[in-house]
Amino acid sequence: MSSAISVRHLTKDFRIGIRGLKLRAVDDVSLEIPRGQVFGLLGPNGCGKSTTLKIVLGLVSATAGEISILGEPSATSAARRRTGFLPEAPYFHKFLSGRELVRYCAQLSGVPDSDVDAAVEDALGLAAMTEAANRPIGTYSKGMLQRIGFAQAVVHDPELVILDEPTAGVDPVGSAAIGRMIHAMRDKGKTVVLCSHLLGQVEQVCDRVAIMDRGKLVLEGAVDDVLARRDRHVMTIEAMTPAARAAAESALAEHGAKVTSVTHPRRSLEDLFRELVTGSRDA
């Protein structure tokens, strides 16, 4: 089976100024994104990740290279019919209600008339936006905008969902809700490509990651593989006394092992925040 996205030797140059100076935004990037996984594309601002996604979607043309989506050449209607996209900091017509927006996007995405109502309700339910669906979009909070953006991206049940900074500016509770939506998509067998510089969230939700820097791909692999340090081990011990610690270190030393650090385990600030701030969903 073909990859969800296949990028081969992608290069993109932008011409800037009257003299047409060349700015290389993406430099010979090759990438295979397997189907059915959550893939994180990481990198600092201006590293070329959003440009790469725009080229994949046919919104920007490539200077060189080949791209295919689900086995079809990218930038074709056939490929886009099977793809959903949530842009960075999405903006929608404020006079539409959430339900009207999702219906509009369902019509543009080719959902048959007979299926539109059910598809709209499914997408709103997945994004936890059913209750607020009849409110004008102009009254939505940032988190709700991202969630309604997610609903419009998945209303046509795409095989591939591309999310560009889906949690930018969203509080940890809203961010966790988006994380749950991403997991729900993966559970349905969809491929999710997540473009972000929030490393903690990417680590939590992604199966594979790629890191870009200055237009180049600098690392790609499964999250566990790229993060694990095979030459180090962590043990979590309860009720350890100084004597027990000395005995353990001595026993390990007999086998040539050395304890290099002993610390108390920490939970993340995000976990603590989510634990304390409950029921503050911005619906």
Binding site: L59, S77, A78, R80, L86, F92
Partner: peptide, 14 residues
């Protein structure tokens, strides 16, 4: 300018 075109043109809309 509001980038709604990004959302729309990423759909099967020519």
């Amino acid at each position: 300018d509001n980038k709604t075109a990004l959302t729309l043109l990423a759909k099967p809309l020519s």
